[in-house]
Amino acid sequence: MKTHLALLRGINVSGHNMIKMDALQKALEKSGYEDVRTYIQSGNVFVNTAEENAAAVGFHIKQEIFKVFGHDVPVVVIAKEDLLACFQNNPFLKESEVDTKKLYVAFISTILNDQSIHDLKMSSVKPDEVYIDSSRIFIKYAVSAGKTRLDQKYIEKKLNVTATIRNWNTVTNLLKMYEESEQ
Results as ranks from 00 to 15, higher is better:
residue 4 H to K: 04
residue 4 H to L: 07
residue 10 G to M: 10
residue 14 S to V: 10
residue 15 G to L: 09
residue 17 N to Y: 05
residue 19 I to K: 08
residue 19 I to A: 06
residue 23 A to R: 11
residue 23 A to G: 04
residue 26 K to R: 15
residue 28 L to N: 08
residue 30 K to R: 14
residue 31 S to C: 06
residue 38 T to Q: 11
residue 41 Q to F: 12
residue 44 N to A: 05
residue 44 N to C: 10
residue 45 V to M: 12
residue 48 N to R: 14
residue 48 N to K: 15
residue 49 T to N: 04
residue 50 A to S: 06
residue 50 A to M: 03
residue 50 A to L: 11
residue 53 N to E: 07
residue 54 A to V: 00
residue 55 A to T: 15
residue 56 A to P: 00
residue 56 A to V: 09
residue 56 A to E: 15
residue 56 A to D: 14
residue 56 A to N: 05
residue 60 H to Q: 09
residue 62 K to V: 06
residue 64 E to W: 01
residue 65 I to M: 06
residue 68 V to H: 08
residue 71 H to N: 03
residue 78 I to S: 02
residue 83 L to R: 02
residue 84 L to K: 14
residue 84 L to C: 07
residue 85 A to Q: 14
residue 87 F to Q: 13
residue 87 F to D: 11
residue 89 N to M: 02
residue 91 P to G: 14
residue 95 E to L: 11
residue 97 E to I: 03
residue 97 E to L: 12
residue 100 T to I: 12
residue 101 K to N: 15
residue 106 A to R: 01
residue 109 S to T: 02
residue 109 S to H: 05
residue 111 I to S: 04
residue 113 N to S: 08
residue 114 D to C: 01
residue 114 D to S: 05
residue 114 D to F: 01
residue 115 Q to Y: 04
residue 117 I to M: 08
residue 118 H to L: 12
residue 120 L to N: 05
residue 126 K to Q: 15
residue 126 K to L: 11
residue 127 P to R: 10
residue 127 P to D: 14
residue 130 V to G: 09
residue 133 D to M: 00
residue 134 S to F: 13
residue 135 S to E: 10
residue 136 R to N: 07
residue 141 Y to D: 09
residue 143 V to P: 02
residue 145 A to L: 03
residue 146 G to M: 04
residue 148 T to A: 04
residue 149 R to T: 12
residue 152 Q to Y: 04
residue 153 K to N: 15
residue 154 Y to N: 05
residue 154 Y to H: 03
residue 160 N to Y: 03
residue 161 V to S: 05
residue 164 T to R: 11
residue 166 R to Y: 09
residue 169 N to W: 04
residue 170 T to H: 11
residue 170 T to P: 06
residue 170 T to S: 13
residue 171 V to Q: 05
residue 174 L to N: 11
residue 175 L to M: 15
residue 176 K to Y: 14
residue 180 E to H: 14
residue 183 Q to L: 10
